[in-house]
Amino acid sequence: MTHEAMTAPAAVPDPMTVHPVSIRRVVWETDDTFTLFLDLDRLPRPFQFRAGQFNMLYVFGVGEAAISISSDPVKSHTLAHTIHRVGTVTSALAQLRKGDMIGVRGPFGTSWPIEEGSGKDVCIIAGGIGLAPLRPVMYEMLRRRQEFGRVILLYGARSPLDLLYRVELEQWGKQHHVEVIVTVDRGDSSWKGHIGVVTALFSYIKLDARETAAFVCGPEMMMKYTLDELERRGLPENQVFLSLERNMKCAIGICGHCQFGPEFICKDGPVFRLPDVRRLLERKEM
């Protein structure tokens, strides 16, 4: 396997140590998805991470869950995680309020290779909660906007009520010359935007295949169809990056819960270059 272009995770000092932090703010993005903003003042050292990495969030007495970091990497005073309430730990996280304490360890995993998009167009394709680990990429690219050609964000969600970061989506489009195209699987009569799967949005953009890097994150089936569409449009596989998810426990490649063929998603991923995992994605038993 080759990871030469992926940014290898920096060693986390004592990665099994849980640091207590308090919740500064809770923002509900949708009916079942919320963002926790954490207060980092009590950490023994400044918290640094790269776009695409994740933390293990520990609800005391309940358990840990791997959650992508969704805030801006340069804003070291704020650490945000956008969380979909789907299981025991995330449901417990959803009960927490400002001032409550949780445990954090991390950051873990590889990051999005933003440099790969430098001098090129960048097409970001996100589905559902998959926009969360890509939001730090947007922040980074908007800060260095001149380094990139076209920046295109294709985002799909289940319904208009399930769209994340609606205010920012609008701002990115209006203020930063980002082509933001949003679609939902189901709309009502008040929704005047696109209805249909995220892959249908490719018909509204013209990609310069040789000069475009693509970052993809979302449910695996959505990514499968997206990868097919990118291939159909001629994007070379080595210009396509995706973030995978599996059940992570230790986050340091020891326990084997997130093993994906010869890879550990927590340590070798979650961000991969497509050729490194393409064959694994096509195997049913994976």
Binding site: A66, G87, T88, G128, G196, A200, P270
Partner: peptide, 18 residues
Amino acid sequence: ATRLQLLDVYGTVVEVHG
């Protein structure tokens, strides 16, 4: 596209990632 829409991919998640 309709097949993908029918799968309701955003509605069937398990707790692995935020």
